[in-house]
């Protein structure tokens, strides 16, 4: 069996495993079953194993890193996203419902990548550079983290909507604690207390202190909400908006320096290969847009009137720009990066 065939078979198996993981994660969210959680984990592990074998097969088979074509690029980005989701679920089991959507996105992404399949070829001389390998590896990791964060931000928006509607109706206040309230529980409206201007690039919002939060005593006669009732919907099954916001922040703050370094490494390579570190070719332009959006996100997090939903929207738009950069720019717009699209 040739390396190409092996990689195709392995990636197909991985795809099915991810579809299984997405389903199992969904079941985890619906039933809160420990068994489904385990199934999600092992499906994803099996998928990532096959995925890795597939990528290694491409690497060995062609003697180069597995991102010579758009298809390979998308497959590599997917692997990094799955790895992020796996790390997350090992550390924080309550994010199971969220990973259902992450695996779903990976399944769609891989399908979209496969639709652009090209027989892999050798690289042009200009592409044979260590700086370039470094550049693409970083861009890949950064893109995966940004996409992941974008999904989390989207879910944050869903959750905030739900919290505003549901908790307002139940508690008569805007709170963000998990909905499984028992009489006498404290509800701390964290978004309110966090509403302070912090310093620039202050990831956590830079709010001076969250210690003076007014504590809302839940009335003893408030009905605790039974698990699994229709009133909960998707929003009710998600982690709290605070947890989602924090997770999105973590992925974006991790991604931002990586993406910045990717752009800089690309500029170094461009300087060596083309004699220009920056020439506003479509890929560079879109990268700049993505970078600008996430720079705005990081500042927005620390700015009153922007933090919370405003920042989350920027994260979502940024993630859409990442997808746009991977597909549209490669396929539709010509430029010096067009060979990346194969």
């Amino acid at each position: 069996m040739s390396a190409t065939t092996l990689s195709k078979v392995m990636l197909l198996v991985a795809w099915f495993a991810y579809a299984g993981a997405a389903t199992a994660a969904l079941m985890t969210a619906l039933t809160k079953g420990e068994r489904w959680l385990r199934a999600t984990f092992w499906c994803a592990v099996a998928g990532l194993t096959c995925h890795t074998i597939g990528l290694v097969a491409i690497t060995v088979g062609h003697g180069r890193a597995p991102w010579g074509t758009l298809y390979e690029w998308v497959v590599s980005v997917s692997a990094v996203i799955v790895l992020i989701a796996l790390v997350l679920i090992v550390r924080r089991a309550e994010f199971a419902a969220l990973t259902a959507i992450v695996y779903g996105v990976v399944v769609v992404l891989m399908l979209a990548g496969a639709s652009q399949y090209r027989e892999p070829g050798a690289l042009q001389p200009a592409l044979q550079s260590n700086w370039l390998t470094f550049h693409v590896a970083l861009a890949l990791t950064g893109s995966a983290l940004l996409l992941f964060g974008g999904v989390v931000s989207a879910l944050y928006l869903v959750r905030v909507r739900w919290e505003n509607r549901y908790l307002t109706s139940v508690l008569g206040t805007t709170g963000t604690e998990p909905p499984d309230l028992a009489a006498g529980d404290e509800v701390v409206p964290l978004r309110e207390t966090d509403d302070r201007e912090g310093d620039a690039l202050a990831g956590s919002g830079g709010g001076a202190v969250a210690l003076a939060a007014p504590r809302v005593e839940v009335e003893a006669d408030t009905e605790p909400v039974p698990v699994g009732t229709t009133r909960r919907g998707l929003g009710g099954r998600l982690p709290t908006s605070f947890a989602l916001d924090d997770l999105a922040r973590k992925s974006f703050t991790l991604a931002f320096p990586i993406y910045t370094l990717a752009i800089l490494a690309g500029a170094v390579w461009g300087e060596q290969a083309w004699g220009r570190y920056w020439r506003w070719d479509p890929k560079e332009t879109t990268s700049f847009i993505i970078w600008g959006l996430f720079a705005a996100y990081l500042h927005a997090r620390a700015t009153r009137g922007w933090k919370g939903t405003g920042a989350a929207w920027l994260g979502v738009i940024g993630a859409v720009a990442v997808v746009f950069n991977s597909f549209f720019v490669n396929l539709v717009i010509a430029g010096l990066h067009s060979y990346a699209g194969g």
């Binding site: 332009t285 847009i289 009137g305």
Partner: peptide, 26 residues
């Protein structure tokens, strides 16, 4: 910071145009 964010977003929006309209330089 709000002014800065809006200006940054305006810059981003302006940069979006060259991905849609061909540029003399590139």
């Amino acid at each position: 910071m709000r002014t800065a964010i809006w200006l940054l977003l305006a810059l981003v929006a302006a940069t979006l145009l060259p991905t849609l309209v061909p540029q003399e330089l590139a």
